[in-house]
């Protein structure tokens, strides 16, 4: 069983290296500033031997987006969760980690496609599922769809006209 590392312990290690990168930490996760994400990720990859990126996901909290990164070391058999916030809503940007983990490529494109967060430094930042010209970002909480043939859909469900 993979051992989840304590976020507080790791926050300590990061804090020694990058003094103002960590904003918060608890047992399960470390919260870092998005500007420092790439440096922190690079540092952790080396020091904790995090050779595998399990997943990246984004959450819309209406006031801000939060990105969650789950990293695992397949050699040392431990894992860590890094979270970062993005307050911008019009044109949110976060540094890409494709340069460190190739597996981030499609996941970052998926987040860009459905949540509208753009990743700085991604080699091919374009939509992955939806077609070119699609209006809006469907996984955002404020997204509204016009259903062809009548009705409007929101996150609360479909209202057929």
């Amino acid at each position: 069983m993979t051992k989840p590392l304590s976020g507080s312990d790791i926050a300590q290690q990061i804090g020694d290296q990058f003094p103002d990168a960590v904003t918060d930490s608890n047992e399960t996760a470390v919260f870092v500033r998005s500007e420092a994400l790439l440096d922190v990720a690079c540092f952790l990859k080396e020091s904790l031997d995090l050779n595998y990126l399990n997943n990246i996901t984004a959450v819309d909290y209406n006031d801000y987006f939060e990105l969650t990164y789950l990293f695992t070391s397949l050699t040392s058999n431990h894992s860590i969760v890094i979270k970062t916030r993005c307050d911008e809503r019009e044109n949110p940007k976060v540094p890409s980690v494709v340069s460190l983990w190739q597996g981030a490529d499609f996941q970052e494109r998926e987040i860009y496609d459905l949540m509208g967060i753009s990743f700085d430094g991604h080699p091919n930042m374009k939509r992955i599922f939806l077609w070119d010209g699609f209006q809006g970002y469907p996984l955002r909480k404020d997204f509204i769809i016009d259903v062809p043939g009548g009705g409007k859909a929101t996150k609360q469900g479909v209202n057929d006209a």
Partner: peptide, 13 residues
């Protein structure tokens, strides 16, 4: 999936 952003609501469209 009716009301989804990506699904055609009935192929008779």
């Amino acid at each position: 999936f009716r009301g989804s952003y990506s699904v055609v609501p009935g192929i008779n469209l």
